[in-house]
Design a protein around this nucleic acid. Structure first.
Lengths: 367, 367
DNA sequence: CTGAAAGCGCTTACAG
DNA sequence: CTGAAAGCGCTTACAG
């Protein structure tokens, strides 16, 4: 029973007599043997680890995706590394990529921002890679080991919901826009255009609540703003806080809808109406893509695009002081009948706390 | 110029002629040479990677610590892996530990919960390890490569602050208590005892806002509760939300103080008074401990214990309907003069948004 | 100061 | 089906 045979058993190669396989397996468990990853890697064994290249580890989408990747990779017996890429010169990005490749052999990159996109671009050919990206324009994503969330639809359905409540138009406070695709902005704008509503100027913010707060202060006295869609929940919370501070009530004076459905969204004051995006699942999908790149795909094709769901809570409602046009449109605004966290069923958080509601297509604004 | 010489240059061993060192260094940068980590590890080279064993990657303390570890490890040229340990049988924990050791050679464990504590216990001797732990009782922590936050002081200063506002006593909604030390609870209780205030029964919750919400609903009608200290900000936010839902105003009807100072705390409604605990710095300290375990310590001794700061915002104030004893104590309650996020300086978040205030020791309640 | 040697623990062809 | 051989890229003693 030589070492080579052990290797064969471990790597599940064919051509091992069942009885010797048994013997080896038995010895392995008896002795607590565990193969040395470094030696395997050196000898050219199969890749058993990923490192995730990302510009951030804390913001909702990133952290949740990381969690999903960790779960999936652990389930597959992979080790997972994390390496933060900072924005920098092309050569510093290349350096970061090299250092990420080296211990792992396979890469996942979260390409939501310039550092991430630069890192994805800098990966030398031949390195097994999967990526979480923003919605690719056109057919750019087909055939690539990429996954994304259909956030254009997120913005669209949130905008449509706000219009259906009777708002004359919907303002949009965006997360930073880097790519040419700007999917969320496009979803928002096209929803307005389809409804014949005026398209206000897009407001660019950052990722954190401080930007929402800052913009909120600036807009607090602007009564034209009755409905605000925010590019993520953090922006929405910062914005709501600024409104409250300025004495404007949410949703009575202004409706606010976020995007993401962060863990705190149901417990904000008021509970945040938002669009749920399941980044954790996205992370798992991305790892599945990587597995297929490595030639270890499961039977079924791994999907690339993940849908979203509008979650109606209490931060949006019909406009209070109706303008001329909103007035006539007010008739069928759906009642907001979801009063917040369900007391009795909090353990079953996902199901109990929120009411999910697929798109609401009642356009209430008339051209 | 043989390979051995290159190795010597890379590992900064002495005894290399300056001119050859130059030549090697030059060739390295010209050729973009990068040593293979697997081979180094195999050949018994120095450890250049850590894996972090943790039961969670998303909750504030964990995620922030992970971020700090990542930064510090990257700065030191280390690769960082993350492996989630679930609670399980001793043998499954041991297995997780083995799998974490193998690709890295060095370990950091976040031992805030049973899985983390079990993992720390299961590490075989000889494996370089540092840990983030709860405050050790007595002298248990001295000499060990452990770091912790002085959260007993967090709870104490928050309790003292609430008492100084004129509250007769302070209730405490705890995060889960696993260890015998229960530092936060002890800090709270001793602050009450020192002030001669009655000690209400401790309420045990979980980590997430849903527990705060649940307890809040249960206590909403209990007017004895005028001041609530929560074991973390998530609990505090859930609790406040339940109060508001039940028609009780914060801080007018009940004061709430959290612990942590999460990124959203300044933007909650109302902005949360809380005790800042810098887990990111704690993560960096922990990595420094690991470096010293590996014999690569910096000149200065790495500290083990990290202090905290009370951050006064708007969720706590003097009691409104004063009870007999609080009445007489009401005199010197400090005014709450921090109105929330500072509009003009939001980029400088840490400095601008909050007002930090070291312990406030005016005991206002008399025995 | 700098080569030549041996070995870290595995894997992949190659013989039997 | 299962050994013996060679090598992955480095490092650490050992000679010079």
């Amino acid at each position: 029973m030589s070492y080579q045979t052990v290797s064969r058993v471990i790597n599940e190669s064919a051509n091992v007599k069942p009885s010797t396989r048994e013997a080896v397996l038995d010895a392995i468990s008896r002795l607590g043997f565990r193969p040395n990853r470094a030696a395997r890697a050196l000898a050219g064994g199969p890749v058993q680890s990923v490192t995730v290249l990302t510009a951030d580890t804390r913001r909702h989408g990133y952290a949740a995706a990381l969690e999903g990747i960790e779960e999936a990779s652990r389930a597959a017996g992979f080790a997972m590394g994390v390496r933060v890429v900072e924005s920098g010169t092309p050569s510093s990005v290349r350096d970061a990529v090299e250092r990420a490749i080296e211990p792992a052999g396979a890469l996942i990159v979260i390409a939501y921002d310039p550092p991430g996109i630069a890192a994805l671009d800098a990966i030398p050919p031949g390195v097994p890679t999967a990526a979480i990206v923003e919605t690719p324009s056109g057919n750019d994503g087909v055939g690539k080991p990429w996954v994304w969330i259909d956030d254009g639809k997120s913005a669209r359905s949130a905008t449509e919901y706000l219009l259906s409540l009777g708002h004359q138009t919907v303002h949009y406070l965006s997360i930073p826009i880097w790519t040419a695709t700007r999917t969320r902005a496009v979803g928002w704008q096209s929803a307005l255009e389809d409804a014949g509503a005026p398209v206000p100027e897009l407001i660019q913010g950052g990722w954190g609540p401080e930007f929402g707060y800052e913009i909120g202060e600036r807009l607090a006295r602007d009564t034209d703003v009755t409905a605000m869609l925010c590019g993520n929940d953090d922006l929405a919370m910062g914005f709501i806080r600024a409104m409250n501070k300025a004495g404007r009530a949410v949703p009575d004076d202004v409706s606010v809808v976020g995007i993401d459905d962060t863990p705190l969204a149901p417990y904000y004051n008021p509970p945040l109406t938002t669009v749920r995006q399941d980044f954790q699942l996205l992370g798992r999908m991305c790892f599945a893509k990587l597995l297929s790149v490595l030639g270890r795909e499961t039977d079924n094709e791994v999907p690339s695009c993940l849908g979203t769901d509008l979650v109606i809570r209490e931060s949006a409602g019909p406009p209070k002081r109706s303008s001329r046009r909103a007035q006539s449109a007010r008739r069928s605004a759906p009642a907001n009948d979801v009063p917040g966290p369900d007391p009795g069923r909090h353990h079953n958080e996902k199901e109990a706390i929120t009411t999910t509601r697929k798109e609401n297509r009642n356009k209430t604004t008339t051209p």
